[in-house]
């Protein structure tokens, strides 16, 4: 089966792209493709705890990130440089993956059959 990696690199809610990319990810999981999810750069902001987009009348999809393991997503990588840029530590974000440096992220992108970002 072909593998796919999804790269989240934008903050949530200003644009829909995070949710749209997540929807593709869930669909690929339904097809049982091996999936890696990467939160790179500003994408780490998708993982900040205690989001309340409902006060903007926008649907909260950050809960779905917590369920990625249940959807069979084995590897979730969180960009160390992205966390540093936004002065975030692991306690500020959803505990759903491993912190990774750019070498590890490069390696994962190189080793999957498809890479998608939106």
């Amino acid at each position: 089966m072909k593998s796919v990696c999804f790269i989240f690199n934008k903050p949530p809610y200003g644009q829909e792209s995070g949710k749209e990319l997540l929807d593709i990810c869930l669909m690929c999981s339904a097809f049982e493709m091996p999936i890696t999810v990467i939160f790179q750069g500003d994408g780490v902001l998708q993982l900040i705890e205690n989001q309340q987009p409902d006060i903007l009348n926008i649907k909260n999809y950050s809960k779905t990130f917590k369920a990625l393991k249940l959807y069979g997503v084995e590897t979730v990588l969180i960009d160390a440089a992205g966390l540093e840029k936004h002065q975030l530590v692991t306690e500020n974000i959803l505990n759903i993956g491993e912190i990774a440096n750019s070498k590890i992220i490069q390696n994962v992108i190189q080793n999957t059959d498809f890479s998608i970002m939106l």
Partner: peptide, 25 residues
């Protein structure tokens, strides 16, 4: 596997280069 990175937004160059490895394009 070598990857071709297609970039259409000049302000994303830095983060794009961070994700690129040797022999990528």
């Amino acid at each position: 596997m070598k990857t071709l990175f297609i970039l259409n937004n000049p302000s994303k160059l830095t983060t794009c280069l961070e994700a690129m490895a040797k022999d990528d394009g």
